[in-house]
Design a protein around this nucleic acid. Structure first.
Length: 773
RNA sequence: GGGGAGUUGGCUCAGGCGGUUAGAGCGCGUGCCUCACAUGCACGAGGUCUGGGGUUCGAGUCCCUAACUCCCCACCA
């Protein structure tokens, strides 16, 4: 036997030891074993330069529970860890660092910037791994990957080239969402719309050769200098006479054709709209349909261009003020109304997104979406909880082409090369030495790919694709993907259609969606609010198991949850309870030999607790099989605390004193505790392993480790309804006695005596009604 | 403008298929260091299950409706 257990649960004293033990002995590893059942999943790769936040802790905990449960069922279990280069997010961090140094990416240049970025990655990249380990996540670190490592980068190029060759990637000049803060184009889903209090300005444009005006309303007066038309609804008879005529743009003097278009709502504003084809998505379409001029007046930095004339060089908001002033002075501004409207902001830096025209790369979505819809509709991929299926389908049905180029440097550079001589473009896996058309010098496209392009390949790129590796053959498709509902579109959807296109299979069978972790008041945790909980602080104070338990207890998959100290404390207390239950057992089992045969108790108490254990095991397995660890842990704690500790242990004190029951009681204590530890292990791996080590009968060496022990089987014990009824009646009776003597207080030892005193249930059945009254 | 989730004791949440006195944890009150555990034990107070209507012998539990909260999606200037 090992050293005696400390009096209280002290997680610090053993957590690191156990993680190292598991990892060093290869217990997280998975061997390719063709023909044998497996369980595999890939970690949602955290940002390489990030640090662990509470959301990761929840995500890793759920995964680790499923992984450990699978492993304990004897499945060949692989959990692939790794990190995401997180193009745009990392950029923001590095640029912030550069700004603090008084420089910028532009000053540094691409090459130097990349050096700094890799330095940064090497310096901070391991931090998050250490944090993940502190949580107990049993990933196979020998298979760790990075989205920008050689293999993943090869996969990215391969995918790009094949999509291009198939005509599913194209380059085009369209209206895009440009973030002046990050200085890159972003995709539709990276734009967050927020209601803002703005103004609606009414401006009159003089009609050509007339003293009349046409009045328009706008929320963005700075774009006036880019106007190339005025549109009215074809149904709007107020403007019938004006259609086909021209208005004169104030300040600029440009002639603006007055056109009819269905985009215009006659009920809004004045019913007449200024058309700025280069800076508004609607106007862009109208401009195309009516052959209007495209005048770009705002550049990628949010500054006015030369086309803005006298406003050139001004910031867009500065320009707004200037133009309003000028309009007012010249008598064109009719009125200003307060107006609430949705404004697009950058998901990353919160800058107001600028719609502008720019040449970018796109993935054609229609052909890819079709199979991605089919596999979900047909149930090849299922969402847990089910309601997210609809969210996914609805999005995929209406998906737009995916803008994948970014004007950033940290990331996978687009494998397109332009000839400096003939101007022709070549897309290829390897950089061509010369232009294949004319032999001229080539230059690679400056842009990198959207970070989700590479993470979209994660489930198969990490297993070796495009090579056909044994890992890929055996572990792919993966079984489950665990992630938050916030990245269903960003990531889950992309993985599904890319995997279908390139492997012909769904990347996983089940998508388990969890909610967000909120603070005690239900608020989102954020830096600005300063209400974030650092998971490592929690681990340091209460232990990793307490954190894991508090993150999984009492929440259903997909629902947001609140985390606060009292909750973690409760979980810690539970660990302590278990700890002391084990101490109690060890104290009483000194010198006891494990019987050759499983115990078959004669006492009602023994039959009762084994029956309850059996029911718990069944319920727990069932909950885990439907990916609801929250339910499972509820059943386990209820069993351990309220049945095993509160009642069975108390009863056992008496049984142990009876010579004919003592042996049986010991065996029951041992059996129940043993299975409880095993049952709890996926949820609280450290404390269970530590206690397991002290259990009689634990074989030495890694094979005796709880992590690789079999999970409690269903149907291992008898359901004994008779014993359950009997003991439950006794419990009721005991409670009744306590009720009668509330003021007296029956101490723990006597609690058990009370049960014994009530050992004739029939007698109590007769008495109960009177006692209860 | 479309979806989705929710509204159960002071707080956080459970309550398949409708059925006897609606559960738990925390908090609160009272009494206890009882030979596993005060990170504990015992006892107790506390709920018109958001409002309205309906189905039913019977509804937190099913249907309709209203209100409020939260979230997602959406190119209306």
């Amino acid at each position: 036997m090992k050293e005696p257990l400390a009096k209280a649960y002290e997680p610090k004293s053993f957590e690191e030891k156990w993680y190292a033990y598991w990892n060093d002995n290869g217990l997280f590893g998975a061997k390719v074993s063709p023909g044998q059942p497996k369980f595999s999943l890939v970690i949602p790769p955290p940002n390489v330069t990030g640090s662990l936040h509470i959301g990761h802790a929840l995500d890793e905990t759920i995964q680790d529970i499923l992984v450990r449960y699978a492993r304990m069922q004897g499945l060949k279990t692989l959990w692939v860890p790794g990190a995401d280069h997180a193009s745009i997010a990392t950029h923001a961090k590095i640029e912030e660092m550069l700004a603090n140094e008084g420089t910028s990416r532009w000053e540094l240049g691409r090459e130097k910037f990349m050096e700094r970025a890799w330095e940064w990655k090497d310096k901070y990249g391991h931090i998050i791994n250490d944090q993940i380990k502190a949580l107990g996540a049993s990933c196979d670190w020998t298979r760790e990957r990075f989205t920008m490592d050689e293999g993943c980068s090869k996969a990215v190029t391969e995918v790009f080239v094949r999509l291009f060759e198939k005509g599913l990637i194209y380059k085009g000049n369209y209206m895009v969402n440009f973030c002046p803060g990050c200085h890159t184009v972003i995709s539709d889903i990276e734009v967050e719309h927020e209601e803002e209090q703005g103004s609606l300005w009414y401006v009159r444009y003089p009609l050509e050769d007339s003293d009349q005006y046409i009045e328009v309303a706008t929320t963005r007066p700075e774009t006036i200098v880019g106007d190339s038309g005025v549109a009215v609804s074809p149904k709007d008879h107020r403007y019938k006479g004006m259609t086909g005529k021209y208005a004169i743009l104030p300040i600029v003097g440009r002639r603006l054709p007055i056109i009819q278009d269905d985009h215009v709502d006659p009920a809004f504003g004045t019913g007449a709209v200024k058309v700025t084809p280069a800076h508004d998505p609607d106007d862009f379409e109208m401009g195309r349909a009516h052959n209007l001029e495209f005048v770009s007046v705002i550049d990628t930095h949010g500054k006015m261009t030369a086309a803005a004339g006298k406003y050139q060089g001004m910031d867009r908001y500065e320009c707004r003020k200037a133009i309003l002033k000028d309009l007012e002075e010249q008598g064109y501004l009719v009125k200003t109304e307060a107006y609430k409207h949705a404004v697009g902001h950058c998901h990353r830096c919160d800058s107001t997104v600028e719609p502008l025209i720019s040449e970018q790369w796109y993935v054609k979505m229609k052909p890819l979406a079709e199979p991605a819809l089919r596999v979900v509709r047909e149930g090849e991929v299922t969402f847990v909880p089910e309601r997210f299926t609809k969210v996914y389908l609805n999005w995929m049905e209406n998906v737009h082409d995916w803008c994948i180029s970014r004007q950033l440097w940290w990331g996978h550079r687009i494998p397109a090369y332009y000839c400096q001589e003939c101007g022709q473009m070549t897309v290829s896996r390897e950089a061509p030495a010369k232009c294949p058309h004319c032999g001229g010098q080539v230059k690679q496209d400056e842009d990198v790919l959207d970070t989700w392009f590479s993470s979209g390949l994660w489930p198969f790129s990490t297993l070796g694709w495009p090579k056909t590796t044994p890992d890929l053959n055996y572990f792919f498709p993966t079984d489950v993907l665990v992630t938050g509902y916030d990245i269903i579109f960003f990531w889950v959807a992309r993985m599904i259609f890319l995997s279908l296109e390139f492997t012909g299979r769904s990347p996983f069978h089940h998508v388990v969606i969890h909610g967000m972790v909120r603070d005690a008041l239900g608020r989102k945790m954020s830096k600005s609010l300063g209400n974030g909980i650092d998971p490592l602080d929690v681990v340091a104070e209460y232990g990793a198991d307490a954190l894991r338990l508090s993150l999984t207890t009492g929440t259903a998959m997909g629902n947001d949850m609140r985390l606060y100290d009292e909750k973690v404390e409760g979980a810690r207390n539970f660990c302590n309870k278990l700890w002391n239950a084990t101490r109690y057992m060890l104290l009483n089992l000194e010198g006891w030999e494990i019987p050759a045969k499983p115990v078959e108790p004669r006492s009602a108490s023994g039959r009762w607790i084994l029956s309850r254990l059996e029911r718990t095991v069944e319920a727990v397995r069932e909950a885990l099989d439907r990916f609801e660890p929250g339910d499972a842990i509820g059943f386990i704690t209820d069993f351990i605390w309220n049945e095993f500790c509160d009642w069975y242990i108390e009863i056992s004190k008496l049984d142990l004193a009876e010579s004919d029951l003592a042996d049986e009681a010991k065996a029951v204590l041992w059996t129940v505790l043993r299975e409880s530890l095993a049952m709890l292990h996926p949820f609280a791996p450290f404390v269970t392993e530590e206690l397991w080590e002290h259990l009689p009968g634990r074989p030495d060496g890694p094979k005796g480790s709880l992590i690789v022990t079999q999970y409690p089987q269903a149907h291992a014990h008898k359901i004994d309804q008779e014993a359950e009824d009997e003991i439950e009646a006794l419990i009721e009776a005991t409670k009744a006695i306590r009720n009668m003597r509330a003021e007296v207080n029956i101490p723990t030892g006597k609690k058990a005596r009370a049960i014994i005193a009530a050992d004739d249930p029939s007698r109590w059945e007769r008495r109960l009604p009177y006692i209860q009254r």
